[in-house]
Design a binder for these strands. Structure first.
Length: 612
DNA sequence: CGCCTTTGACCTGCGC
DNA sequence: GCGCAGGTCAAAGGCG
């Protein structure tokens, strides 16, 4: 908005100057002319120049000789002056026309942008419809900061009205760079980093394909959709906050997709950074261990549930199943898991749609297009490989699965299976580094097939940078300690650190998309890479692009381009991140230490608490 | 006192 | 329609 004015103003000033000049010059000239016509022979054109601010009248053109000559000169000068005046009038008119044109263009641009946002919101953006004014204001605010934010992208993908408050704090949408720990002092006051994570609740899966997924997921019947909508507890809060039915209905898409994480953990639950409230427990058939049902309590209306159950085969293995996407800002420490699960769910849904083509049902299907999930590289020769511009690097994990054996397609991230080895692409992520401490068996993130092994799709998925201790704590290997020490890793939950790194990475990528990713922070970012690479999924990518577009006020920069360019670096990061390891905890904990995870305090936090 | 867990009852979907 | 299993509700009690 400022830009149109500035050139115009400059032009106007320039024009005014010229006009003043001309009038002044004219006045002087006339005076001199009168003088010349009079008695003063000293009235030379030199004096005309003096008052003319650059309007030369060729002082030495003619030596003061006869009056005839002087009249000739004056006549010539007047002609020139007239022509100059005409030019200036012309220029002024042109300037006015340009100003009008510019303002018209600006107006059109604004209206188009509004229209575009409106379309986005109506086309599947949850809750945004209720936040139209807010988001518009945000966008305007954002745009006002485009000079400093040209290269920044807001990733508040999981935001809702609550996240709208974010920009309120610092006057604009939180940007990736600001999401990094050090930039936002106000948010830093929040120990949990609540608002930091606002941008990374990637609930994209439901938005990317509102119709397609619906048709796909609802294959079991129409009423199911309604049921799922009603599934959410009729709690008071839910009833009061159900203003956006779109949100609920769209959440149901992801609701059906589940992400299951298997990890060795002695604590009752794994700490994923979120706050959970247990609302039920049931002994499931075939497993003597009861299954606990948790509901996210960060936001009263958050639809995310998780089920925690110990494996019947190995009691030390904790199976945590996530369902749904957070609709609120997440603690920094939770964004990783949230984005991972959401991204995985998104990918899962994509697979779901491809299952119609028979791809998902083929077991042990080789996969090739790298996507990264929390440092896990999904690979797929299925539709994921449509993203052919991605550098193709292949990783292989034998124990990975997407299960579609029930109404809830489930992707399982298995952290319990020791990494068979590492990958040539990760030369330094050697098993030796993992196993340097025999007490802490190395583990990679694998995708284990579910118990029944039905309809599983084998994925190549290295997450070899992630270890866990014998007690199930997530650890990263030694290398992340090496690099991460400079990053102060250890003062904050691992995932939080990773997300910060991710945000920094994204910021840098936006600034220098072509720059090599050898920034030390980037090397640590498996989480980021994970989520980022999930976007290799075309649907996820389109959703992300739409989300980004809706948040990038100035639209001059193609956000999708940024994403694609980021893709180019995904594997690079993965390569580096794969070898990163965190300082191993020196403590092993037992259940007696953590009797009950009232606040979701589980493995990870326990470890962190110990290590802090 | 508020929040949480526990736990039995209830609801719902699905297969037979 | 019935039974089973998964999932949820909500009252009761515990805990800080």
């Amino acid at each position: 908005m400022e830009m149109p004015k500035r050139p115009s103003k400059a032009l106007m000033e320039s024009d005014n100057t010229h006009e003043e000049t001309s009038s002044l010059g004219k006045t002087v000239l006339e005076d001199k002319t009168v003088k010349s016509d009079g008695d003063h022979e000293e009235g030379t054109p030199m004096e005309i120049t003096k008052g003319g601010h650059g309007w030369h009248v060729e002082p030495d053109l003619e030596p003061p000789s006869t009056g005839k000559n002087r009249a000739l000169v004056n006549h010539k000068q007047q002609d020139e002056l007239q022509s100059a005046k005409a030019e200036m009038v012309e220029a002024t008119e042109e300037n006015e026309r340009l100003k009008l044109l510019l303002s018209q263009i600006s107006k059109d641009y604004q209206s188009l942008r509004m229209h575009f946002h409106g379309l986005l919101q109506n086309g599947g953006e949850t809750k945004k419809c209720t936040d139209t004014s807010s988001s518009t204001a945000l966008d305007l605010t954002h745009e006002q900061n485009t000079e400093e934010a040209d290269d920044l992208v807001s990733l508040s993908l999981g935001r809702t009205s609550s996240s709208i408050d974010q920009p309120r704090k610092d006057g604009r949408i939180k940007k990736i760079s600001q999401l990094s720990s050090s930039t936002n002092g106000k948010d830093d006051d929040d120990d949990n980093g609540m608002l930091h994570g606002a941008g990374l609740a990637l609930e994209l899966g439901c938005r990317s394909e509102p119709a397609a997924d619906q048709s796909t997921d609802n294959s079991s019947g129409g009423p199911k959709e309604d049921d799922l909508t009603e599934i959410w507890p009729p709690s008071k809060t839910l009833k009061t906050t159900r203003s956006g039915e779109d949100e609920v209905s769209q959440q149901t898409h992801l609701k059906k997709a589940r992400v299951s994480v298997r990890a060795r953990c002695d604590a009752p639950t794994m700490n994923d950074g979120c706050q959970w409230r247990k609302y039920g427990q049931k002994t499931a058939k075939g497993n003597p261990c009861p299954r606990a049902y948790y509901r996210c309590t960060v936001s009263p209306s958050c639809p995310v549930r998780k089920q925690v159950q110990r494996s019947s085969e190995d009691m030390s293995i904790l199976i945590t199943t996530y369902e749904g996407s957070h609709n609120h800002p997440l603690p920094m420490s939770a964004t990783a898991m949230a984005s991972t699960t959401s991204a995985a769910a998104s990918m899962l849904q994509s697979h779901s749609s491809t299952s119609q083509q028979g791809l998902i049902n083929s077991t042990t299907a080789p996969i090739s297009a790298s996507t990264n999930l929390q440092g896990v590289n999904f690979s797929s020769t299925s539709t994921l490989s449509q993203n052919s511009r991605l550098p193709q690097k292949h990783f292989y994990f034998p124990n990975s699965s997407i299960s579609t054996n029930n109404s809830h397609p489930t992707i399982t991230l298995d952290l319990t299976v020791p990494s068979p080895s590492h990958f040539g692409i990760f030369p330094s992520a050697s098993g030796s580094s993992f196993s340097s401490n025999p007490r802490y068996p190395s583990t990679s993130l694998n995708f284990s097939s579910s118990s029944d092994h039905n309809n599983t799709l084998q994925l190549k998925s290295p997450w070899n940078n992630i270890n866990h201790t014998a007690s199930g704590y997530f650890n990263y290997g030694n290398r992340i300690n090496q690099v991460g020490s400079a990053l102060n890793i250890g003062k904050q939950p691992i995932f939080q650190e990773h997300n910060k790194v991710y945000q920094s990475y994204s910021y840098i990528q936006n600034q220098n998309p072509s720059s090599p990713l050898h920034h030390p922070q980037m090397l640590n970012d498996s989480t980021a890479t994970a989520t980022k690479a999930i976007t290799s999924n075309p649907k996820f990518q389109s959703a992300l692009a739409a989300a980004l577009t809706s948040f990038v006020g100035n639209g001059s920069t193609s956000s999708t381009t940024g994403i694609r360019e980021s893709h180019q670096s995904t594997v690079t990061i993965a390569e580096s991140a794969s070898g990163l390891k965190l300082k191993r905890g020196e403590s092993l904990t037992s259940n007696s230490i953590f009797p009950s995870s009232q606040n979701g305090i589980g493995c990870a936090s326990s470890y962190l608490n110990k290590s802090l």
